[in-house]
Design a protein around this nucleic acid. Structure first.
Lengths: 210, 210
DNA sequence: GTTTTTAATGACTTTCGGGTCATTAACCTA
DNA sequence: TAGGTTAATGACCCGAAAGTCATTAAAAAC
């Protein structure tokens, strides 16, 4: 049996995103340094040479992966917050729901783990990601918290640090899924996890009834 | 000026732990694949050849780093839980305090980030770490939660998932410190972070006053 | 002080993978 | 359908880093 080599296809438009998608999957799984460019190329259905047609270097490919991963989901969250008129806890719920359906359930879900693992090898990319995603995401949560505190719905806590505590379980869910879970067969059930997180927050943030 | 080359020292006993300490620091900073063995050797004050006197391969060194990082801190937590006779929330506080002073403030603090980044390249080490640290840590938190629910101090929630939600911010604190923080100069203040986490938990877990 | 043992060294070998480029062939246009 | 353009290929180059080992010298033994 001879593996019939596929005829070449010229698909200039489709290649870059196919390559970054393949790269994202492999970087998340094995880490940047341990991923070979040829693996990425094969996964994207091209040769190594083709990869260099679209990206100058392995580093450039990494940067492209992160930049492409910055979908307008943050802007979407900002729009949700702007037109929201219910309670603060409802706003937090909506932001969480939106985040999950637009990030958690998509191919972008691996980016947080990748960014965390490689931040110190790509400090400029880390800063870019921080400025364009984390900072704006934090601001969204911060505004919701402050709204709740101002209206008397939430008790008063130091906001900046509370933001971190609120976001942490959301990130850990994705990190776990792309790191330990595949080694253990112990998936976390996301909907239940997020529901309990939200439930603890709802009551934990509530202004004490004295 | 000639750099006076230090005279050799024969220190058979001290070398292995000095080498694993150097390796841990560099693995956490740069990742396993991107760390050169010679860097580790230099940091430990020896030559590359000496490293191979004590470890068979780079992989073996990684395994040793993780295994050495499993200090008896879990057992300590188990002892604290066994002799605790106060409220469940006090138990959670004590466990958190012990964890922070015995892990969070020591050189071992980098291990969670390292393990998360490399789990899928070392699935057997990941399982070992899970069995010996994570599983026992989860069991500790789970027992505290169940004690609180049984006594009526906490409301009833699905325990297994609640454990994950409770642990997540504690892990994210360390992960952040060893990944994004060094790139941004945005350290999280640990004591305040842990205090707010505990405060949200205290009220979030409380049985509702109907 | 001399000999023996073995911890330590660093130059060397080898393998691996990032990056290059001359060649090939798919698609377009006239 | 012939000719031109350029997307795609994969053999090749080369530097870097894992791993080896003959040699050196620190400490121990006598």
């Amino acid at each position: 049996m001879f593996a019939a080599t596929q005829p070449r296809r010229r698909r200039k438009e489709a290649r870059p995103s196919e390559l970054t998608a393949a790269a994202l999957a492999l970087f998340v799984e094995k880490g940047f340094a341990a991923t070979r460019l040829e693996e990425i190329a094969i996964r994207a259905g091209v040769s190594k040479g083709t990869l260099y047609l679209y990206f100058d270097s392995k580093d450039a490919l990494f940067k492209a992966v992160i930049q492409e991963g910055i979908v307008p989901v943050v802007a979407e969250g900002e729009a949700i917050a702007a037109r929201h008129d219910g309670s603060a806890v409802e706003l937090l719920e909506r932001l969480l729901e939106n985040w999950w359906s637009r990030i958690g359930e998509t191919e972008y879900a691996g980016i947080p783990k990748l960014m965390i693992a490689e931040a110190r090898n790509f400090p400029d990319v880390a800063r870019f990601y921080y400025e364009n995603v984390i900072r704006r995401g934090r601001a969204l949560i911060g505004a919701a918290l402050e709204r709740g505190m101002a209206s008397g719905e939430f008790r008063r806590l130091e906001v900046e640090t509370t933001i971190e505590v609120v976001i942490a379980p959301i990130l850990m869910l994705l990190i776990w899924r792309f790191s330990m879970a595949p080694c253990l067969g112990r998936e976390i059930e996301p909907r239940q996890y997020l529901a309990i997180h939200m439930e603890l927050l709802r009551q934990g943030l509530e202004r004490s009834r004295v």
